[in-house]
Design a protein around this nucleic acid. Sequence first.
RNA 1: GGCCCUAUCGUCUAACGGUUUAGGACGUAGCCCUCUCAAGGCUGAAAUACGGGUUCGAUUCCCGUUAGGGCUACCA
Length: 485
Amino acid sequence: MIPSKPVRVRFAPSPTGFLHVGGLRTALYNYLFAKHHHGTFILRIEDTDQSRRVEGAVENLIASLDWAGVHYDEGPHKEASHGPYVQSQRLEIYRNHTEQLIERGQAYYCFCTPERLEQVRQKQIAMKVAPAYDRHCRDLPKLETSDRLKAGERHVVRMKVPFGGETTFDDIIRGHVTIAHKILDDQVLLKSDGFPTYHLAVVVDDHLMEITHVIRGEEWLSSTPKHILLYQYFGWEAPRYAHLPLLLNSDKTKLSKRQGDVAVEDYRSKGYLKEAIVNFVAFLGWNPGDERELFTMEELIKEFSLERVGKSGAVFNTEKLDWLNAQYLRKKSDHEISLMLKEELRNSMFSEKNYSDEYLENIVRAMRERVSFVKDFLEKSPYFFSAPKEYDPGVVKKRWNAEAGGRMKRLAEEFAQLQNTKKEDFEAALERTAEAMKINRGELIHPLRLAVSGTGAGPGLYDLLYIIGKDETIQRIMSATEQLK
RNA sequence: GGCCCUAUCGUCUAACGGUUUAGGACGUAGCCCUCUCAAGGCUGAAAUACGGGUUCGAUUCCCGUUAGGGCUACCA
């Protein structure tokens, strides 16, 4: 699809906490679509519900977006020609537009109290009728309206929805969607506190900000006709719509906090790489149509299209995310990973120790194929950071026998003679010892690994010995023979 | 309840009426490699929700059923 006008899209979250992974995907798709078409990606803050204000939420949102590499061209702190980008700073605009609607008879003041509304609702429920506003104030005499307004009576403004007819729109993802007007409510546009509702603000802002494509979650699908009606009332051209499928829990319900982490921040602190998160989230609902799995942001921009976004909800299952993380971790250089490892160590139980860059890079080289996360270096190979305090009982049973102690001591003596301590030197020394003792080298290798690392898993034994060094090796052998009688 | 949306392996998905014994990836099982654990390679198990049409031919188009989800606020 080649849009005629320059593409302008927006991500419009309400700042009620942290960036949800579903929100990240929505933001990402908007961003990818914008960049693919050399358009503009806008961040707009929809803070029209004062009761849900959360301190620091906007900054948090921006930080998470920024971390993921989803950078906006216009938005808070990046004011451009279409600002301000925070809805609570645009109240005047909404009020003016509401007045236009009232003058043209497309909206009206409503003085109904919440109590009356509740009564009406209860009655409707009792009568098994669909709950909706009964349009009590729709045709109030002009004089009465102005009197009550003058008297300062609390009120809202509602839109007049036609009694008959229907609205059809062509959603890029879902095709034609039709909704009958009779099931639409006379939606509140301006609340009694002077703030707009989402429905008014989204239409006014999208128009004023010259948004060409509205890419948002499926939860907005059924209220889209209301928005289109408003565009018609204002005499504006409506944008194109693309309603994204939802992200789901494993039980296929809408992804929620109750069943696991949903904040981007959570995944970040768990050690997921942004490349993995972005790649993973992009593939929840979209795919390139071929069998490639690994995509950088640049590649996503190049390949992304709304036409290839699916219609059905996707379970947010992190198994594949873990695999992706391992893939991206392996793409990094030893040095890059060693810097991340250093940071990880700073926040660990080994924080008081100091390891040289070379030592860390050696560990990375030895372990990089064996980890999925940076924190795995500490969890899977703690023996690089401190001598084993205990020995895996299963491995002891399997690899440590009556002769092991003596053999290890003999090996330690052999190692002590070593002038050079490259991995080949350890290897040669061990081979020599095995030969002299007329045993398979496995009889030495396995107990030695246990003695030095406390486990039966890890990198090649000679790499391990080389990294921790001759003295430490000998010391660990001695202490193992002490403890494993 | 009403309205709207959706429905392919456990999960993410491919297939845009025939090239399909329904492909790939993650996960999973086995084998190979091997000093262990990984990585890697190979092999396997695993799906078109159900019922009707349309058609020479349906995963693909239509209808219904079922299931799931969304909306139904002076929340977004």
